[in-house]
Amino acid sequence: MDGSYSNILYVDDEIHNLNSFKACFRREFTIFTAQSAKEAEQILQQNEIHVIITDQRMPETTGIQFLTSIIPQHPDPVRMILTGYADINAVIEAINKGQVYRYIQKPWEENHLRQLIHEGIDLYTRSMNNKKMTQKLEESNRQMEFLLRQSLLS
């Protein structure tokens, strides 16, 4: 998947962080930003998002809580947590509950974060390709079973 066709959602309650993120990456990716989990959920309802990056510490919900809450409706986006706090319990919870691909320390370094976004896009692309191949295999199996039943009945 080409980076410019990749939709990245960045969730952070601090507007200057959202603006900085957008300024750094808008030429390379399609950037969506949200100041709250509720706003992020609206964006997810209306757009196919490939990578979600969320701040861990927000007033209404944590990044982990947000990512965990969207798994049933939006299982496919690659998830990353961004935080200025090194809390090993939050890291473990993020990985276990929020299905987080990467845990990134603030302040983020632009080239490192760009590399992680590209890795996330690659992971998303491979996952979607695997899903499509699985669906094709399941359909082929159903067709073969149908043909086998037809030949056994005749």
Rank of each mutant, 00 (worst) to 15 (best):
A94I: 09
E138A: 09
N130A: 10
W108I: 15
T62I: 12
Y101N: 06
K22D: 11
I121F: 02
Q35G: 15
A90K: 06
P72Q: 05
E119N: 10
E110S: 11
L148T: 10
T62W: 05
I81A: 07
Q46C: 03
M58W: 01
G120K: 01
I8K: 01
W108M: 14
N130R: 09
L44D: 04
Q56A: 07
G3A: 07
L123D: 02
T54E: 05
E110D: 13
G3E: 03
Q73K: 12
T68N: 08
R102Y: 10
I81T: 07
M80T: 02
S6C: 09
L44W: 02
R26I: 12
H16T: 11
F29W: 02
I81L: 13
K22Y: 03
E109T: 13
I70V: 15
M144D: 00
H16S: 08
S127A: 10
H16A: 05
S154C: 03
T125E: 06
N19M: 12
A37E: 11
L18W: 01
D12C: 10
Q42H: 06
L113I: 04
E14R: 07
G3Y: 01
S6D: 02
V51A: 04
T68D: 11
A94V: 08
I31F: 01
N17E: 06
I31V: 14
E93N: 15
Q42M: 10
T54D: 06
A37G: 15
T125F: 03
E119G: 01
M144P: 00
Q56E: 14
K132N: 11
T62K: 08
Q73C: 00
L9C: 05
H74K: 07
S154T: 12
K132M: 12
P72L: 04
Y103T: 13
T125K: 04
G3H: 01
M144R: 07
H50K: 05
N96D: 15
P59R: 13
S140L: 13
P59S: 13
N7T: 06
Q135D: 13
W108N: 11
L18V: 06
I64R: 00
G84E: 06
N47T: 08
D12M: 08
E60F: 08
I121G: 01
M144G: 00
M1E: 02
A37F: 00
Y124T: 02
E119A: 11
T62D: 04
M58S: 09
S36L: 08
Q73N: 08
Q65V: 12
L137C: 02
G84F: 06
A90T: 14
Y101T: 10
I117P: 00
K132I: 11
L9T: 09
S20W: 00
S20E: 04
E109K: 15
L152I: 14
V100H: 12
E14K: 07
F66E: 07
D76K: 07
P72N: 04
H50C: 07
K136T: 14
Y5W: 00
L152H: 06
I8D: 02
E28D: 14
R149D: 14
N7S: 12
D87Q: 11
N17H: 08
H118V: 12
K136S: 13
D76W: 07
H112A: 14
E48K: 09
T61R: 14
I43H: 04
S151Y: 04
Q150V: 09
T83S: 15
I71G: 00
P72H: 05
Q143Y: 01
Q135V: 04
Q115S: 11
R142F: 01
Q105S: 15
A34F: 05
E145R: 13
D55S: 13
W108H: 11
M133E: 12
Q42G: 10
L9W: 04
